[in-house]
Amino acid sequence: MSEIKLAENKVKELEKVCAEHGHQPGELINVLHKAQSIFGYLPREVQEIVACKLGIPVSKVYGVVTFYSFFTMTPKGEHPISVCMGTACYVRGAEKVLDEFKRALGLQVGETSADGKFSLSSLRCVGACGLAPVVLIGEKVYGRVVPGDVEKILKELN
C-alpha cells in the first residue's frame, strides 16, 4: 500500500481534537468519530496519528476501527449510496434493489467506483420503515424504491 499524504491543516485539526479529549485512551471512539468527519475515512496514516497522540498501540486503534461498522478505511464516493437492509426493508424487497444497484454500478457492497463518484453500502434500519424499502444517498432519503427506479435515480445523480 502506498503512503497517503495527509493534508497538513487536517492533521493539525486532528491533533487539536486529540488534545481536546485530553489524549485519553478512553476517548478513542469519540476521537475516531471526529477524525472520520475530518478526513472522510480512517486510513492507516490517520490511525497512526491517533495511536501516537493517545499513547496506545496502532493495533488497538485498528482493532477498534475494524470492529465498528460506522468506521471505514476506504473513502466514500461523492454520492454514497446506502441501501437499508433492515428487516422491514428486506421483506419489502430491499435485496432486489441492492442487487440492481450492484449490477448498474458494477460495484459490490463496500466498494467505491474508480472515478470516486459512487460508493455502495448497506445499512441497518434508518427508522423510516413506513417508506420501506429505503435508499439513503448522502442525506437524501428515497422511499418505496423498486429495482426499476434505480437507473432513474442514478441518472439524476450523474
Binding site: 471512539i29 475516531l32 468519530h33 465498528y68 460506522f70
Partner: peptide, 8 residues
C-alpha cells in the same frame, strides 16, 4: 453523551 459506532 457517548457515541456508539455501529455494533449490534
Amino acid at each position: 453523551i457517548r457515541y456508539g459506532a455501529g455494533a449490534f
